[in-house]
Design a protein around this nucleic acid. Structure first.
Lengths: 218, 218
DNA sequence: ATAATAATTGAATGACGTTCAAATTATATA
DNA sequence: TATATAATTTGAACGTCATTCAATTATTAT
């Protein structure tokens, strides 16, 4: 019988909608129950508690994220271009899923309980995808060999998370995609001027002066 | 009369201690009241509500943070070295104040309500300090001129926040200071290999192979 | 000393997550 | 089909906790 699975899905779907409008604390089980068309007690037959229900949301989302990411990376060979595409897709995904972005970035990502939950597996898969790109880049000879790859990943994910987080906190007003190019460039080349040329860009396109793109100040 | 200020401080001090042991949700007003030696109702004479009390914690902490940071940066001239010192102090501060780090990084930093609160002013001051260093670097000619400084700051703060966040989520086990050098280097130079040399490091010290320092995997 | 004002108290209130005994529905048996 | 048994659903009841407020106590002014 997949009767159970259907009912579970029905509750989860309601949870996605109701949690999406607001945050964990301001969302009540009774709202979700009403939306799902079941009694409050029924929810506890399918989920351990409110937090378990909340943390179940990323289960499928992370799967599609990773699968789509793989698809977008297919065909790209240079690891530096993969990093650019990675950044592009990361920003693209959260812009396309702002409700989910809010839950994941502002609530789950900083929760020890989430890190211990089963849903976290999906996040780990994604993180290993990031690591794989960096490693591949070292093998290709385009990523510095002297780097701790885990720390490099901190730089990559930290910059992306920070941009998305600030975007969310400011009400999702600007177009977050505008900063994709320069952000990728920063991750690849850093902020300092290097010995040879003055900007160390690897794409030909010049970038204008400050303040013409990217999420705004603060 | 500073009688009111004293009582307020007494409650705030208790709040720091009790919130520090745990998180916002798992901390009760009655605990804080007991610790402060007042009745629960008294707290509401000095703070609008539980969240207001919680958000009042960074008020002084951010002040000392910024002041100390200024002190540490005094005497350093090269903006690149200032960025290194900035990263060092950032990590140092949160390692020294793990209770506060937990509250600020895992709860306040991702809260829209906090961004709207008065306490946020302190965070903004700190963020403008970061911006000033980058701007100074451009004027010195050591930071790329083609950069959006706000985006560069995202890279800097994002990387640092990410490292500290992962450290907290993993239970503050490793020594977070170990990654300071390479993280600064990554922010300055990026992950890619540059035209001239193979690693583009500006400090003389060589770095060993992977996994000998920095917060661990994931 | 007495009135007026301010500060403190802690029981009462309401909201909400969670539980569980009873009711309902589905499945198996004859 | 009728009946027994198991699975599912229900929603009122419970406990916890932030917040309020009328009563009490302390402080200040006259």
């Amino acid at each position: 019988m997949n009767k159970k699975a259907t009912r579970r899905q029905q509750i989860l779907q309601a949870a996605i909608e109701i949690f999406g409008r607001s945050n964990f604390d301001d969302t009540s089980i009774s709202e979700i129950a009403r939306r799902a068309g079941v009694a409050e007690g029924t929810i506890y037959q399918y989920f351990k508690n409110k937090q378990d229900l909340f943390f179940s949301i990323p289960r499928e989302k992370t799967k599609t994220f990773s699968a789509q990411l793989d698809l977008y990376l297919k065909g790209v060979t240079d690891a530096r271009e993969k990093i650019r595409k990675f950044a592009w897709y990361y920003l693209h995904f959260f812009r396309t899923n702002p409700d989910y972005a809010r839950s994941l970035m502002l609530e789950m990502r900083v929760s020890k309980a989430f890190a211990r939950s089963g849903s976290y597996k999906g996040v780990k898969r994604f993180m290993s995808q990031a690591l794989a790109i960096l490693k591949e880049g070292q093998e290709q000879g385009v990523i510095r060999q002297d780097l701790d790859l885990y720390l490099s990943r901190h730089l990559l994910l930290g910059a992306l998370e920070h941009v998305v987080t600030r975007w969310l906190l400011k009400g999702e007003k600007e177009d977050i995609m505008l900063c994709h190019e320069q952000l990728s460039d920063l991750i690849l080349n850093g902020v300092a001027i290097h010995s040879g040329n003055g900007s160390a860009r690897t794409t030909g396109k010049p970038i204008g002066k400050n303040r013409e793109n990217g999420p705004g100040r603060s």
